[in-house]
């Protein structure tokens, strides 16, 4: 039997000084290659869950295993994409993309080639020498994603990466993300507060209920990949979005 890519067993998190836990009794197994969206009302611990998986903060209860290992020992497999592009303002786009490789001590010449290839992939070659402040929101986010992909992650953790973008840009970025995934086949954990985005991207949507955050529902999204604008126009998609929205509303009410 294969080990799940991400395994959470009765995971709970309580922050120091607060009386109620943020997350409680989370059991979840994600197989390799799955695209899992996590939605839920704000304050239900979506981001906390992602940071627990990344090993950026420790669990209060339960166990998390990434490919059978502890999260902080499995960081080489993972990349994290934050809500803000979190670029270093003093570095050009290409230097920002090279950051992760640099931190992991890869040789410089190798980085340059890899960086150029990544910029090509996300369509930013023409602004390689620009500084972040000169970029639009969408371009900043693409830089951030290119940086995350630089270390060839198997598991991508994305915390509302497109939340600050306008709807048109967001839709396009969603399609680009799926296109990249087809080539590189990562496992993705994607936090969002948009039901439409969650359904469009994922093979499985997890609905969290708040106070304390726990898994209320799981929705399998059996829409075929590759997904395009046609997917958005289909009845099956509409039906899934409606159902998920309903479940989200119910989860909120509890």
């Amino acid at each position: 039997m294969s080990v799940p890519e991400v395994l959470l067993q009765s995971v709970g998190k309580k922050f120091l000084g607060s009386t109620k836990p943020v997350l409680e009794g989370i059991d979840l197994a994600i197989e390799r290659g799955e695209f899992v969206s996590i939605i839920g009302p704000s304050g239900c611990g979506k981001s906390t869950l992602l940071k627990l998986v990344a090993g950026l903060i420790p669990c209060s209860k339960g166990e998390i295993a990434i490919d059978g290992a502890k999260p902080d020992a499995a960081r080489k497999l993972m990349s994290f994409v934050f809500q803000d592009a979190t670029l270093l303002q003093w570095r050009t786009v290409e230097k920002n993309v090279a950051l992760a490789l640099e931190l992991e001590g890869k040789p410089r010449e190798e980085n340059a080639a890899r960086t150029a290839q990544l910029l090509e992939l996300v369509g930013l070659s023409h602004v390689a020498k620009h500084y972040p402040r000169q970029l639009s929101g969408g371009m900043k986010m693409r830089t951030s994603i290119a940086r995350a992909l630089a270390t060839l992650p198997r598991l991508l953790l994305m915390d509302e990466p497109f939340a600050a973008l306008d709807e048109m840009t967001r839709d396009r970025m969603n399609e680009e993300l799926l296109r990249l995934r087809e080539e590189q086949n990562w496992t993705v954990l994607f936090v969002t507060h948009s039901v439409a985005e969650a359904v469009f991207l994922a093979s499985k949507v997890i609905v969290l209920a708040p106070h304390p955050g726990c898994i209320a529902h799981m929705v399998d999204v059996d829409l075929p990949y590759p997904r395009t604008q046609e997917t958005r126009d289909s009845d099956a998609y509409d039906e899934l979005v409606n159902r998920t929205s309903r479940l989200l509303r119910e989860a909120h009410r509890v």
């Binding site: 940071k51 990344a54 950026l56 960081r75 080489k76 993972m78 990349s79 994290f80 934050f82 809500q83 803000d84 979190t86 270093l88 950051l99 992760a100 931190l103 992991e104 270390t151």
Partner: peptide, 14 residues
């Protein structure tokens, strides 16, 4: 410094 940036560095074992 933005806390997320520090965490980004942590993710890559800086």
């Amino acid at each position: 410094v933005d806390e997320n940036l520090v965490q980004l560095f942590m993710m890559h074992n800086a």
